[in-house]
Nucleic acid binder design. Sequence first.
DNA 1: CTTTGTGCAAACGATTTGCAGGATG
DNA 2: CATCCTGCAAATCGTTTGCACAAAG
Lengths: 138, 138
Amino acid sequence: MSQTKAEIIQTLKAKKLRVTPQRYAVYANLLGREDHPTAEQLLKDLNKDAPTSSQATLYSSLQALRNADLIRDVIIEEGVCRYDANIDLHHHFRCTKCGSIEDVPWEHFKQVEAKPLRDGLQVESYEVTIRGICDRCQ
Amino acid sequence: MSQTKAEIIQTLKAKKLRVTPQRYAVYANLLGREDHPTAEQLLKDLNKDAPTSSQATLYSSLQALRNADLIRDVIIEEGVCRYDANIDLHHHFRCTKCGSIEDVPWEHFKQVEAKPLRDGLQVESYEVTIRGICDRCQ
DNA sequence: CTTTGTGCAAACGATTTGCAGGATG
DNA sequence: CATCCTGCAAATCGTTTGCACAAAG
């Protein structure tokens, strides 16, 4: 999963995205974490040491990366959108106590697809969302 | 599923909710439909013929009904919350073209629960979200 | 008559947008 | 050097809140 700076830049170029420091920083940051941050958390982290991106630019970077299928939204709680640089199929677990979210490997619910849906519905994708208490919060 | 006015009022009282015309209207409306409306859609429908509820009251009614476990949120798309008077376990299908949402019976993915999650995670609930194209949009 | 709900309007938080200047390819 | 990006501030959208009045039990 870990990519070098040059590799990340290559990925962006391959998607025909202009490589700016802000856009690079957003994508590199998301690639380096698995906690599905909100825009606010992401922005705080990006600007932790030195100012890196404004709020407006962050949202525009996220939109560009999403359109290029490099990241995806995670809609799992009300009001906020979370972002995920893992675009492989997977499910999510959300702790109802601390709100943390973690990936659940696709294989965990592989059997789901076995069951066909009623005729007339064309399925594009599906995903299992699990809610519960995580290790730390027990 | 269909309930008489008296039955609905009984349900509200049983949950120790004060029965106001607004609260009754919201719950009765949600019981009478299966399309998981947003607050905006609900409000428009409630006030279609005669003014029934203000926006602020609608949200407060929804909150009261949710706290009483008579309705539940459906978080399936960005930015808006949808409401559902069907509190039985079930899954959801969302049409990526028209945005409509429909229920998928619990039995459809009954097999999901067979698979145990890793130790340390305590599961409270889970739900499958399917995205695709509905009958009308094909 | 005590408690809780209602409706208005203002407040709020997350995200989007218009626009002038700046950086990228 | 044409195109696209950035950052600021204002705008927008869904939802929440403060408060004076009204209705429910």
